[in-house]
Nucleic acid binder design. Sequence first.
DNA 1: AATGAATGAGGATTCATTCAT
DNA 2: TATGAATGAATCCTCATTCAT
Lengths: 216, 216, 216, 216
Amino acid sequence: MHDQQKEERRQDILTTVWQLFQTTSYETVTIAGVAEAAGLAKGTIFLYFKTKEALFLALLEQQLGSWFASIDAGLLALEGTGDILKITTLLCEQLASRPGLTRLLAILHTILERNIHLDEAIRFKYLLKEHFEQTGHLLERCLPFLKSGQGAHALLQCDALVIGFWHLSDTAPVVQQAFQQPELHLFEIHFVTELSIAMQALLYGLEKSAQLPSQP
Amino acid sequence: MHDQQKEERRQDILTTVWQLFQTTSYETVTIAGVAEAAGLAKGTIFLYFKTKEALFLALLEQQLGSWFASIDAGLLALEGTGDILKITTLLCEQLASRPGLTRLLAILHTILERNIHLDEAIRFKYLLKEHFEQTGHLLERCLPFLKSGQGAHALLQCDALVIGFWHLSDTAPVVQQAFQQPELHLFEIHFVTELSIAMQALLYGLEKSAQLPSQP
Amino acid sequence: MHDQQKEERRQDILTTVWQLFQTTSYETVTIAGVAEAAGLAKGTIFLYFKTKEALFLALLEQQLGSWFASIDAGLLALEGTGDILKITTLLCEQLASRPGLTRLLAILHTILERNIHLDEAIRFKYLLKEHFEQTGHLLERCLPFLKSGQGAHALLQCDALVIGFWHLSDTAPVVQQAFQQPELHLFEIHFVTELSIAMQALLYGLEKSAQLPSQP
Amino acid sequence: MHDQQKEERRQDILTTVWQLFQTTSYETVTIAGVAEAAGLAKGTIFLYFKTKEALFLALLEQQLGSWFASIDAGLLALEGTGDILKITTLLCEQLASRPGLTRLLAILHTILERNIHLDEAIRFKYLLKEHFEQTGHLLERCLPFLKSGQGAHALLQCDALVIGFWHLSDTAPVVQQAFQQPELHLFEIHFVTELSIAMQALLYGLEKSAQLPSQP
DNA sequence: AATGAATGAGGATTCATTCAT
DNA sequence: TATGAATGAATCCTCATTCAT
């Protein structure tokens, strides 16, 4: 079996998992279910992914790759504009079109990274670093107030916003019911909307901070 | 047994849980452990708290109450100053001095709210609303650019930042090891530091946004 | 529920396991099977025994208790006789009438003791020590050549013989088939017979050794 | 590929397994590990050995061959002496210098013989028979009280002792900890020491038994 | 002869929660 | 009001072995 075939099978598994994950939660997706849906034996799954977490991490890598690619393309077109609104819209819309990605990001630190091997952790973090730095670089060329290295850092701050607002917006069923009470609509968060607002404000604020003389 | 005695026992349980939670994780704290530490039977715990999640939610309520009280006091002293830096420092330092609070906030939406009853959800959300609106009000008086109602909303945005940065900073052991690799220190997040920076930028940005003519 | 009832249920479980163990192997006995046969939930079994190994260890304790009791009674009747043959016969026949005991002894060190908690290990070893010393004492009074403490030691040597000969006699099915070959009957070991012969020789030898002046 | 080459490769595999087995347990040695260490594919291992058990059985054959050779040489020098102490010392020291051999003997009947094919079982048992009879013969010439055929039988009894004392001395980690308790040192068995004592006694006893008029 | 991808069986264990007493 | 015995769901992963190439 050639490497190409192996890669194809790996992709098959990832595609299967991705489909299952769309309609259910991480917990609901079981290896047994994945194997059955993929027409493989349980053990075969583990031949391609050491743990369930590593499997979903690979999924995240793909989605992240896709997202960063879109962002990079978009940022190139915005080079030098300094248009925070357009940049925010770009980031958020590309995220909104990948609902699964956000859910994966939201469980990355609490679940996915909790049961992987060191080598996987290192590889993933380096990959992430590459993305952050490359896209951060592009971001710096769009937003001149960002100095070298601050682009990646800004992306990290956006990541925090994504995770945070996802948690706020992805409410449990009981909480949904509670929201039927009057005056509680305050907490009904529309993810993309709120994320956009906050991200925009954050970038404006970074611009302002850059203009200030010093920060201890 | 008088209501007072019941309340005392309820407090005893909460105090016990709080102590256990300080040194371990939510998962590690078991009802059996709580019962033993409190000198009660397992079943008794459930007489005071319907579920484990409700128990921790009560804990969160207390800590939140304490935090909001401090914030309120602090904001009163900053009324009208518009000093974003001081406000940010206030919010973050009061959070930094309550490590358990942050950890509870980080699991509020993914765990605590997932297994409580409707009445508890409603009560908690109303309580939260009260806090958000009262403190939001005070915030509005400190930051004149915040219109009525925007104070609570700003606090919500801060909440998102807290959750997000906690996830980014609370890394799994393997990831900690991975960080020993060169050039990965980018991801080593010091919670309070990063939270402060982002929160400050966010508030600056909200100020800037308020000055802009319109927002679609 | 009184302690007595708890003890009864504990006994029920042990009895159930004992019955299952009679007709199958340790591996074949599953907790699920035990629970079903006992009309209990799986979790309930673990309420009475921390691990599967601890469950079988309790079984062994009972059987050992019974065996030692019979031996003690028998040895009392042989006090001062120095009749090695009768003693050997006593030990072996009491063992032969408890087939399960031998099987448990044979897996004690390789399986049972491998997954128990320290407190259980300590308790079991002290229990064993008690038995060895008490019965060893009686043995010393039957066999005058045994000095103080040597009785327990002799029992330990017998234990080794029991384990060893059980392994030699409890042959795998394939090996059974192999024994249909001519001239291989050498290896067809009848457990009790061979154990008796060796144990008798061992005791004779200990007597002889005692008469020798010194052993480095 | 010539038979000679095949035999060489077979030896390579055995050598590799032997090295791995020295530092770990039977369970820890995996076919995958053996294949990797030997620079072969997993499937290749099974071309030379039908099962994992057959592989270790071959190992045991080699070690046994080596041990019996040493014993034979030693017994020749002791011919006619009737010196039980020297014989015991010979047997035990040659065993002590081959720690892996004892470990293999201890799992021979419970593991190795459980998953081999009939032809292998037959071959192994015949091989064993050869050894037992040849060395048994030599033993008979050292110990005149042993009648024809009793030498092999005595070796079988020694085998039982080896297995039994190995189990008693090879204690689980928890049990090791338990032995830190006072008064439990009774169970801390030094394998070679105890084996020597018991084997010597056994042989003395066989001598004594031979002098007795009759045995039922 | 060598490969290595695929297989798939197999089971203990925890712990929040309930409810009879 | 307090107890604590009983419940039972829920699933990952290893690794010897096979067999098509």
